[in-house]
Amino acid sequence: VHTTPGLPSGWEERKDAKGRTYYVNHNNRTTTWTRPIMQLAEDG
């Protein structure tokens, strides 16, 4: 699994054909234009 540093585990930053940045979530095979926020791990 490709992961971009600074993004949550399983996420990758890519660019489309027009050079726009988007983000790929390999965990559930989705994409988004919005940069994901790293969540702190919570117990329980």
Rank of each mutant, 00 (worst) to 15 (best):
T31S: 12
R35M: 03
S9L: 12
V1L: 06
R35E: 03
A41E: 13
T30W: 15
W33V: 04
E12M: 07
N27P: 06
T4I: 06
P8R: 07
N25F: 00
T3P: 03
T32I: 00
T34W: 07
T30R: 04
W11S: 02
P36L: 00
R29F: 06
H2Y: 15
D16C: 02
G44K: 11
Y23Q: 04
T31C: 08
L7S: 05
P36K: 00
A41I: 06
T32D: 04
Y23E: 03
P36Q: 02
T30E: 10
I37T: 13
D43S: 13
M38L: 10
K18Q: 11
R20F: 06
G44V: 15
W11I: 03
M38G: 11
T3G: 11
P8L: 07
R35Q: 07
T4W: 03
G44L: 09
A17R: 01
T32G: 01
E12P: 00
G19D: 09
T31F: 04
N25A: 01
S9T: 11
T34G: 05
P36A: 02
T30A: 07
Q39A: 10
G10H: 03
G19C: 03
K15A: 06
G10A: 03
T31W: 05
E42L: 07
P5G: 14
D43M: 04
A41Q: 10
D43E: 15
P5S: 15
Q39S: 12
I37P: 14
R20V: 13
G44E: 13
S9V: 15
P8K: 08
T3V: 06
Y22R: 02
T34N: 12
L40S: 13
A41K: 11
E42M: 07
G6R: 13
R14E: 04
L7V: 06
L40P: 14
W33H: 03
E12N: 08
T30C: 14
T30D: 08
T32R: 02
D43N: 14
P5N: 12
G44T: 14
E13T: 08
N25W: 00
K18D: 15
N27S: 10
R29W: 03
R14Q: 07
S9R: 15
R20P: 00
P5Y: 13
D16P: 00
T32A: 04
M38S: 09
G6I: 01
E42A: 11
W11M: 04
E12Y: 03
N27L: 10
N27D: 06
N25H: 02
T30G: 02
E42S: 11
P36W: 00
R14G: 03
Y22K: 02
R35L: 04
N28D: 10
E13P: 02
H2P: 05
M38W: 07
G44P: 14
R29G: 13
E12S: 04
P5T: 15
R14A: 09
V1M: 07
E13M: 06
Y22N: 01
E42V: 10
T31V: 07
V1R: 02
T31P: 00
Y23D: 03
T34S: 10
L7T: 05
S9W: 12
N27T: 05
H2W: 03
T34Q: 13
I37F: 12
P5Q: 15
L7E: 06
R20E: 15
G19P: 03
P8Y: 01
Y22L: 04
L7H: 05
L40H: 13
P36D: 00
V24P: 00
T32W: 01
V1Y: 05
Y22M: 07
R14S: 09
A41L: 12
R14W: 04
M38V: 12
P8I: 05
W33A: 04
N27H: 04
P8Q: 05
P36C: 00
D43W: 05
R35V: 03
G19T: 08
T31R: 05
T34P: 01
T21Q: 06
E12R: 04
E12G: 02
Y23T: 03
P36V: 00
G6K: 14
P36E: 05
